[in-house]
Amino acid sequence: MRRAVCPGSFDPVTKGHLDIVGRASRLFDEVVVAVMINPSKSGLFPIEERVELLGLVTRELPNIRVETFRGLLVDFCRAQDAPVVVKGLRAVSDFDYELQMAQMNVGLAGVETLFMPTNPLYSFLSSSLVKDVAKWGGDVSAHVPELVARRLRDRFAAPPAPAAAD
């Protein structure tokens, strides 16, 4: 079986992420979407909710499995029997960083990295940008699945104003 890993924080998952995962699903028998647990970072969505969202928005792809991992990506890849990592590249600046990681991963464990150029529709898109726009009430529905857009709206909904004193 040809298995690959698509790692990331997915906080939140965007249409750009889903484009890469979907394209990878056509190239490999199984794709493990690996949600990184980083205890030094607090995300907008808890890990469990990210896994839930990814499972729901990828349910139409029968060869996708969503898992969490902490530690070295290469150790996770070994445990999953996945010799390939698939990463999307938006711009040259992504390549500089990702190339270093890819070279380290192949040196540490022989895990290869397949770089996929991002669909131009999503080349500017990042989870951080989506969160920033949503936080200020902007419409992110063109950039994330509708379920994720609803969760973002709920997360950033303004609390009710306190009642005025008589």
Rank of each mutant, 00 (worst) to 15 (best):
F76A: 02
L18H: 13
N105I: 12
D154I: 12
V92K: 12
R26Q: 15
V106R: 13
H143I: 09
S127H: 05
G16L: 09
M104S: 11
A102M: 08
P39H: 03
V148D: 12
D29C: 08
D11S: 02
S93L: 03
L56N: 08
S40R: 15
V57G: 02
R70H: 08
A91Y: 03
T113D: 08
P12S: 06
A149L: 09
C6R: 08
E52R: 06
L152Y: 03
L72R: 07
I64E: 01
F69A: 02
G88Y: 08
S126P: 05
V85E: 04
A91V: 10
A165K: 05
R153C: 02
V32C: 06
V144I: 13
L129F: 12
P46T: 03
P46C: 09
E98Q: 05
C77G: 08
L125E: 10
S42M: 10
L89A: 01
C77N: 05
E98Y: 11
R90D: 01
Q103M: 10
A142H: 15
L121P: 11
A82M: 11
V35L: 04
R70E: 14
L18T: 11
R150A: 07
T14H: 12
G71R: 07
A161Q: 14
L56Y: 00
A158I: 00
R50I: 05
D154H: 14
V57S: 05
E112G: 04
D166V: 04
A82L: 04
F156S: 12
S93N: 10
F95N: 01
S127I: 05
E112F: 08
W136I: 15
A134D: 14
T118M: 14
L73Q: 06
